[in-house]
Design a protein around this nucleic acid. Structure first.
Lengths: 339, 339
DNA sequence: CGGCCTCTGGCAACCGTCTGCCATTCGGGG
DNA sequence: CCCCGAATGGCAGACGGTTGCCAGAGGCCG
C-alpha cells in the first residue's frame, strides 16, 4: 500500500489548516497571511509568493464562516421558491447558480411549499447566513417583502414587486403575441386556464382583460386549483362546455394535462380546439401534438436576477428588468373548426 | 402612514439583534441567553420564559455563522451533482431538502458540470462550511472520495462507493424486470443505449452482460455522448442498423430522444421496436407513445441519503441502502414485429 | 448546625478571519 | 543630513455564540 498523496497534500489530521498554521510555518503574523491572500498589493510580492506556496502545500481553504463573522459577507446567496420540482424553476436555478459561481459564491436553495408563513420564516432564517435572496414567485405581499429587504437585499424573480428590484418576463408582449397568433388563425374566443388565488395569475388575467377589450377577441377565465398536469386535465369538461375554440394555459404542465385529458376522451387537438402553453419546459416539444407555447426566458431571469443581487448595483433605485417572451409555434394550434 | 409593525416586531435598524441585545435588556449575561435558547433544563424555567419573550419581541434569530465557529457545526448540508437541470435530480434534491429541513438544517446545492476536477474543488470548498455532503452520481473514484470523506462525512447517492455509506437503486432487480418484460413480449435481442465513460453506466452494462449470459436474451451496447434528448435522437440510425427489436435507454431523456427521432423518421414505436426508459421523470407519461420505464425511487434516495448524513448513525461501518426499482409498463413496449 | 449537592447564572477563553492603527524600515528630496 | 512618506508587517480588538469552570444560594441530610 503506497502513499497516494494528491498534489494538494493535506494534513494527516481531519482538521483543515488555518491561517495560523501558515503564519507559524513562515514565522509571520496571521494578519499578514490574511492580507496576503485577499488584499492584493498590501503585502510584499515575494512574501505573498511564499505564503501562497505554503497555503497550497497545506491545502488551505478559507473558512467562509469565520470570514463572514467580521465582514458580514458570507459569499452565499439563497433562492427561495415555492416548488423545487417544478420544471419551470430548473433553468432559473441553473442560471442563478452559474452567475453565483462566477462570483465565487455558493447557492442555497430552499422551498417554501407555497406557504406564505413558511416563506417568511425561511427568508428570515436564511437572512442570517446569506448576502442576498432571490425570491421566486413569492406568495408574500409587497409590503412584507419590502420590510424583509431592509435586512438583506432581495430580488424578485418571475414576479414583480413594487419597491424591489425585479426580473420578470414581458407578460403583456407574450400574451399579445399569443392572442395575435390565435386571431390570425381565425379564433375569436379564448379561455384562460388560471390558478385561482395566485398573484402572478391575477397579473396575467388583468392583461388578458385589457387585450380583450382592446381587440376583437373574447376571453373567459376557467379557474383550476393547482398548476399541475392533473389540474389541467380537470378543466377539460369546462373547456368543452364554454364553447371556446382555443385555450391559453397557466403553464405547460396545465397544457399537458389538457392534452392528456383530450386524448383520453378521444378529442383531437388542434382540430377540436387549440392549446397554447406557457414556459416552454423541455417536454413541450415531446408531446403529441407538440405544444405551441410562450417561452419564458427562465435561464435569463435567473442570470439577470442573480447578477442584480451579486453586483453592487450602480444605481440606487430598484431596477425592473423585463425580458421578452417568445411565442414558439408548434402543432397544438390550428384554425378553429368550421361552424 | 400608520405603523404597520408585524407580530415579530423588528428593530428599526437593519441590524439583526444578537444575544447581547437580549441579555442587556434583561440584565443577564449573554451566556445565560445562549443556554436558555439551546440548552433545555440548564436555565431556570421562568428566566427562559422571559428570554424567549424578548427574543420573540426582537425577532431574534441565531446567527449560524457565529454558532458554527466554536462548535464546528454549521447546520448546513450540501448536495453536489453533475447537472442541476437534469429532472432526475430534482426529486432527489427535494427529498433531501425536506429531511434537512426537518432537522432544522439548510441545503446548499452545487453543480459540478460533470467535471471531476471541478467536483473535487467544489467539495473541498464546501467542506469548510458544511456538516456533510451528499454526492450524487460522482465522477470521482472511490479512493478520492474516501480521502475527502475524512474531513466531513460524505454519503454517495445514486451510485455506489465502496468505503462510503451509499444509497442506490436496485439496478439488478430493475434491469431483470425490464428484460423479463421484454422477453415475455417475445423480444430476444436488446440494445442498451449507454453514455460512454460514466461509472454508473459501466455498472448497468455489467449487470446487463450478466443477465444476458444467464438468460436467453442477446444484448448489445450502443454508446452515446450525452444523457440528453439529443443524445437519444442521435442513436436512431444505429438502433435500426443493429437489428434489435427493443431498446433500453440510459434514462428517460435519452428515451424521449429516440421516440422523437423515430417519429420524425416516420417509424412507429412500439410497432417497429420497443423502448424502455429509466427513471420515470414526470414527462414519461406525456409522450406518445407513453414511455415504459424503470422508476427509480429518486425521492426516497434523497430522503434516505440525507437521513444517513443528518443522523449520528448508530453503526460505524458504512451502510449501503438499496432501494427497489419498479417497472412501469406503458405504451412504448409491445411484441416485436413478425419476421 | 455544618457539609455537600443541586440549581442558576456569570466570567472568560475560544472558534478563524478581518482590519484600524501603530511601528519599523528604507529611500528620496531638499 | 534630516524629514517625510511609502512600503511592509504586527498587535489587538471585533464579529456572535458556545462552553468549561467557578461562585453564590438554597435545600437536604446526618
Amino acid at each position: 500500500m503506497h502513499d497516494d498523496e494528491t498534489s494538494t497534500g493535506e494534513s494527516p489530521t481531519g482538521r483543515r489548516p488555518t491561517i495560523y498554521d501558515i503564519a507559524e510555518r513562515l514565522e509571520l503574523s496571521p494578519s499578514t497571511v490574511s492580507r496576503a491572500l485577499h488584499k492584493p498589493g498590501r503585502i510584499n510580492a515575494t512574501t505573498v509568493e511564499k505564503i501562497r506556496a505554503v497555503a497550497d502545500e497545506l491545502g488551505y481553504r478559507v473558512n467562509p464562516m469565520a470570514r463572514a463573522l467580521p465582514t458580514g459577507m458570507s459569499g452565499t446567496f439563497a433562492v427561495v421558491l415555492p416548488d423545487i420540482t417544478n420544471p419551470v424553476h430548473f433553468e432559473l436555478i441553473r442560471g442563478a447558480e452559474q452567475v453565483a459561481r462566477s462570483h465565487g459564491a455558493t447557492l442555497v436553495v430552499s422551498e417554501s411549499e407555497g406557504s406564505p408563513a413558511l416563506e417568511r420564516e425561511t427568508i428570515e432564517t436564511l437572512q442570517q447566513s446569506v448576502d442576498g435572496l432571490l425570491v421566486v414567485a413569492s406568495r408574500l405581499d409587497a409590503a412584507q417583502l419590502r420590510k424583509l429587504a431592509a435586512i438583506k437585499p432581495i430580488v424578485a424573480a418571475n414576479h414583480s414587486a413594487r419597491d424591489l428590484p425585479s426580473v420578470t418576463p414581458d407578460l403583456r408582449g407574450g400574451l399579445t403575441a399569443a392572442l395575435d397568433h390565435l386571431h390570425e388563425l381565425g379564433h375569436r374566443s379564448v379561455a384562460y386556464l388560471g390558478v385561482t388565488g395566485l398573484a402572478i395569475n391575477r397579473a396575467r388575467w388583468d392583461i388578458l382583460l385589457d387585450l380583450a377589450t382592446e381587440g376583437s377577441m373574447s376571453v373567459v377565465e376557467i379557474g383550476i386549483e393547482e398548476p399541475t398536469v392533473d389540474g389541467g386535465s380537470s378543466a377539460l369538461r369546462r373547456i368543452r362546455a364554454s364553447g371556446v375554440t382555443a385555450v391559453l394555459a397557466y403553464n405547460d404542465l396545465v397544457a399537458h394535462g389538457v392534452l392528456r385529458a383530450a386524448r383520453a376522451a378521444g378529442i383531437d387537438v388542434p382540430t377540436a380546439f387549440s392549446v397554447v402553453g406557457f414556459d416552454d419546459i423541455f417536454s413541450a416539444e415531446l408531446t403529441v401534438p407538440a405544444l405551441t407555447t410562450l417561452r419564458s426566458p427562465l435561464r435569463d431571469i435567473g442570470t439577470k436576477a442573480m447578477a442584480l443581487l451579486a453586483d453592487p448595483g450602480t444605481n440606487r433605485s430598484p431596477s425592473h428588468v423585463v425580458l421578452p417572451i417568445e411565442l414558439v409555434t408548434r402543432e397544438s394550434t390550428a384554425p378553429p373548426p368550421p361552424r
